[in-house]
Design a protein around this nucleic acid. Structure first.
Lengths: 204, 204
DNA sequence: CCTACCGATCGGTAGG
DNA sequence: CCTACCGATCGGTAGG
């Protein structure tokens, strides 16, 4: 949300564009890309159908704008880039904490857009994402390697795959079962315990 | 695939129904539920549009049939139910191996249907799934508990969440990056190594 | 009377 | 930014 001051400074057209992106995001989350009509987006934004085309060339460009705003890149890069710590243990715990903080705020809103990407666009844009975050991910993994003197003798790719799988799986299962009683019964935040198991698994 | 003998025994209508479910599955995977038209399904199955309605009351009933055939239940229940082993270590490795075998065969074909479920149907049917596999999952977790004498003192829910996250994340990342060069560069099957890290993390 | 299916078309709505 | 409207296509059904 923008402050009133920021809103006043924006040109009228920009406000409408923002409304359209927000409205489109909401509609896409409910029924996907193909299940959402331009009329539904227009109605939610309080704009006529034709008015959308003053800001976007077509439906796909609306999705591109939504994807740009709800892109995992904006969450993953700061979290992975700012991880610090003397020991490997501190480093991993800090990274997990940063990821959790960022994903608690924005992770749930990003997830549906990723599903649209994977399902309706065959993950085209995600291939780009993989290449864009690869340098940051490499830097992060160098942090692993630089602190590996306390680590068991393990193939680094395996350690990386295990850490990635654990984090992705933790947030994915949390999202899917977000209001299931089966998960709600357990402790709210099991991430520290889960990370502890991982650390015990790779350290001497 | 059915054998010729089985095909001959099937009534004509059943053959057409099977063709329709297979065709619908293929089309749904490409563009999702709302992005697929009855005409596309009919065309791929080599059937007239109206012919679909001799087998299904409508489009949603077609999806229900697809979901039923490509349901994770059919994969997860046997794999989790048949896990055996004297020690916790053997038990976990066996379960992971069974899951990998089942998911290597059918996991990739199930994934897109799950995305449709999560995105376009708000995960309605997945809630049912969670409740249906819960007993089997409990039995599996009792296998954990029964062999826990070699385990560190850890809260069982945390161990469960870690194992679930690790397996879900491993197969999910494998699916998403299935033809990415970043993953293809590493060893093909890292599951044993990943499971080894988990075991080292929970055992004394 | 059943089944499985056809060519053609129904009332409405899609993106533009 | 809106109203009005297009070519086409949507899910579903008519009679035969």
């Amino acid at each position: 949300m923008k402050t009133t001051a920021q809103k006043k400074r924006q040109p009228r057209g920009e406000v409408t564009r923002e409304k359209l992106v927000d409205a489109a995001y909401g509609e896409f989350c409910g029924r996907g890309y193909h299940g959402t009509s331009m009329r539904q987006i227009a109605a939610r934004a309080g704009v006529a159908v034709g008015g959308i085309y003053n800001h976007f060339a077509g439906k796909e460009e609306v999705f591109a704008a939504v994807l740009d705003q709800y892109h995992p890149y904006h969450v993953l890069v700061p979290a992975l880039g700012e991880a610090q710590g003397e020991s490997l243990e501190e480093f991993v715990r800090h990274a997990a904490k940063l990821l959790e903080g960022a994903l608690a705020e924005q992770g749930r809103s990003i997830m549906p857009i990723m599903f649209i990407e994977l399902l309706e666009f065959q993950g085209q844009h995600l291939k780009d994402l993989a290449e864009r975050i690869f340098p940051i991910f490499l830097t992060f993994l160098q942090g692993f390697a630089a602190r590996s003197q306390t680590m068991r003798e393990l193939p680094l790719p395996t350690v990386q795959r295990a850490f990635t799988s654990l984090m992705v799986g933790y947030f994915f299962t949390g999202y899917v079962l977000r209001d299931s009683p089966l998960v709600a019964a357990g402790p709210a935040d099991q991430l520290p315990g889960v990370v502890d198991i991982f650390l015990h698994g790779i350290l001497n």
